[in-house]
Amino acid sequence: MERLRRKSQYIFTLLANAYWLFPWKSPIYQGPLKKICFPGLNCHSCPAASMSCPLGAFQNLLATLRPSIQMGQLHIGAYVLGSLGLIGSVAGRMPCGWICPFGLLQKWLFLLPVPKFSFWRPLRRGPYLFLIVFVVLLPLLVVDSLGYGSVWFCKYVCPAGTLEAGIPLLSLDQGLRSAAGWLFAYKFIVLILLLTWCSFTSRPFCRAICPLGAIYGLFNRVSWLRLRFHPDRCVQCKACLTICPTDVSFYNGLDDLNSAACIRCLRCFSICPSNAVSLEFGPVREDISKAVNTLEV
């Protein structure tokens, strides 16, 4: 299963960045595939990006909502939310574990031989904060005299934009390089800090910041695909907790197995020696939440 997941991460990273003509042709891909939102975090200004970034697209639609209404159009981000919601309703947060290029990068960085630190659990609320404030409210409410807002998350937080788009484009274009100022310096520092954090802690961006993961995470309990914990089979060996990249502690009832923190990497499902974790696809079974509540009591 882990080998399959690794292959999936590599294939989707290549698919999301399949335009390798940028040094000779247009600096970024401008074909029809960019009408499709890639289900992971991958900046569409990356020279090799073949699809659009859902977070960037959603913020752009919200930032231009007022002018679009004035022109008689209602562009509220339904296309982007519909795309993400459709994927989330089927697989929950599975794209985070199987598709996202930035998740793959975090996995690589965590392999570096440096001391490892556990994640501070209250930061789990971070992704919702970034989603509500930086992705929705600020682009929607902070507007100029013409009614245009800005893409706040992309501009001030997103490390993928700096890494995948900023650094390559500035390396290739003298004009862009000379235009870079304090904002690029700030974004570069944010990127370095985040990448450093990724080497010390497992998937900190997914767990503390990523608004895309926050959206998918909302579906984990009600998606077609779900994980199911069988407490009667559990031998309390903690193998699931040891291997979980987001420290979902379901064996002792601290977390729900289908909590929003789970990125559906399915490593717990693969490693459990007593088959206490199973996969389900279908309508929600009423006894799942009861099983968790029984454990908590």
């Binding site: 600096p27 200004s45 934009g161 900023g166």
Partner: peptide, 10 residues
Amino acid sequence: AVTVCLSCIG
């Protein structure tokens, strides 16, 4: 998506 996002690249 086909225009270089200056905000994204800093």
